[in-house]
Amino acid sequence: MTDATIQPSSTTGNARLRVVFAGTPDFAASSLQALIAKQDALNIDIVAVYTQPDRKAGRGQKLTPSAVKAAALEHGITVEQPLTFKKSVEEGQQARATLREYAPDVMVVAAYGLILPLEVLNTPRYGCLNIHASLLPRWRGAAPIHRALLAGDSETGITIMQMDKGLDTGDMLYKTHCPIENDDTAQRLHDKLAEQGAEAIATVLADLQTYQNQATVQDDTHANYADKLVKTEGEIDWSQPAAVIERQIRGLNPWPGTYTFLNGHRVKILASLALNDSQMTDLPAGTVISIGRKAILVACGANEAHQGSDSSDDKKNSTLALTELQFAGSKPMSAEQLCHGNKLDDGDVFGGQAL
């Protein structure tokens, strides 16, 4: 979207809409940067930015500002970093009072990371809008991008939602659609949706009143909870079908990443090829079938469609082609590098536990 396609917001007439932005990671920073660039076109003023407190990061564990804070400071926008909005503690009371002083017309929220109590949601004149990386109500919760990939969804998107006291349960104002490609990783899909989110929130703010008047209630019967990721989800269970493992490799890239064990030592699985359903094997799941220059073929569990079948062909295991691995203490290695090395042999079996 270009500024030329944006019409000034009709919500407040000629008055510029006072916007408070709340977000923390790169995903949110993309929307903030877009709104900063389009303030005049959208007839808005970003009067303050809220983000998580600086966190220790890197080998030196230096306090590092969030991507949103860095973007705000670059443009001279005031930054607030409260630890809480809870009414039961003094800091939470002060955070609520400070927000009221900004007299916001609307608050835009994207991956902020703090729970906003009902009083906070009701502080802006037109409430709080959330940029959510899912076609609600499909994936509510902390990790919608990853869960869509892990589940094998064919598409995802952005929903601009009017926030309420529930977890991603508010009325939907606007949606964009994003096909999920066979080679999409969580990072790649994140980047696509960050761009769509920036365009979507600009579209809504350009005519906020119309979109709020046309809001659609979510159908709770279609909702799923996108649980927060944990590191242990990265361990590969080779008894699962190749399709499931391939989605796991893409869906958890770059974090927490996928891994397995070989002779008790951890091996990171960094990338794999698209599936070849015609390639079946009698070898047990986890067995390295062959090491080629283009890929390392590994036996996995029976395909999902064939599980429980009585056919002898359907009882065979599926296979997955790995293209990049990383052994402990080594740099990432391509299949071709492994083909010429001594790290892996035909017949090796992935799985088991750490020494």
Rank of each mutant, 00 (worst) to 15 (best):
L273W: 00
F261G: 07
P104A: 09
L283N: 03
Y211N: 00
D207L: 01
D237M: 01
E80Y: 08
K69Y: 04
L73P: 01
T156M: 09
Y225S: 06
R55M: 11
A200M: 08
A142W: 14
I131W: 00
T210D: 00
R140K: 10
A28L: 02
D277L: 14
L17R: 00
A328T: 15
G329L: 08
K228P: 10
A67N: 10
Q353W: 09
T98N: 11
E74D: 13
R100T: 10
P25G: 07
W139L: 07
T185W: 07
G76R: 01
G251A: 13
Q7M: 09
L99K: 00
N317K: 10
K192Q: 12
A148C: 11
D171V: 03
A321M: 11
L262Y: 07
R100Y: 02
H177K: 13
R96Q: 14
E199S: 15
I115F: 10
A72G: 02
T258G: 07
T216C: 06
H177M: 13
E155D: 13
M163K: 11
P241I: 11
L275Q: 12
T216K: 13
L150T: 08
A67I: 02
I289T: 07
E195T: 14
A335W: 09
E101H: 08
R59K: 14
A97D: 12
K87P: 01
D54G: 06
P65W: 06
D220L: 07
Q209D: 13
L173Y: 02
N14G: 07
D314H: 14
N213I: 03
N263W: 06
F327C: 06
G329H: 07
P124F: 08
Q81I: 11
A57N: 05
K268Q: 05
E155L: 11
T210W: 00
Q33G: 05
L129W: 03
Y225R: 11
L135S: 12
N182Q: 13
I36C: 02
V120S: 00
L208C: 00
Q94C: 08
E90L: 12
I291A: 14
E119V: 03
A148G: 13
A194C: 11
A57C: 02
L297G: 03
L297C: 05
L118C: 01
Q7V: 13
A97W: 04
G286T: 05
W238I: 00
D164Q: 09
G113H: 12
F327P: 08
V267Y: 04
V49F: 02
D184T: 07
L73V: 13
V106F: 09
K175Y: 09
L118A: 10
P117L: 05
W255F: 15
S334I: 02
K165Q: 09
V79D: 10
A72N: 01
G308C: 12
D219P: 08
A305M: 04
G141F: 04
A28I: 00
K86D: 14
D54Q: 12
P254D: 04
N122T: 06
L262Q: 11
T5R: 12
G341M: 14
A34T: 15
E80A: 11
D45N: 14
T11S: 10
I131L: 00
A328E: 15
D277Y: 14
M280N: 13
S239R: 13
A206S: 15
I160Y: 03
R100C: 05
G292Q: 10
L129F: 04
G76I: 04
G166S: 01
T210R: 03
L136Y: 10
R16S: 12
K192Y: 06
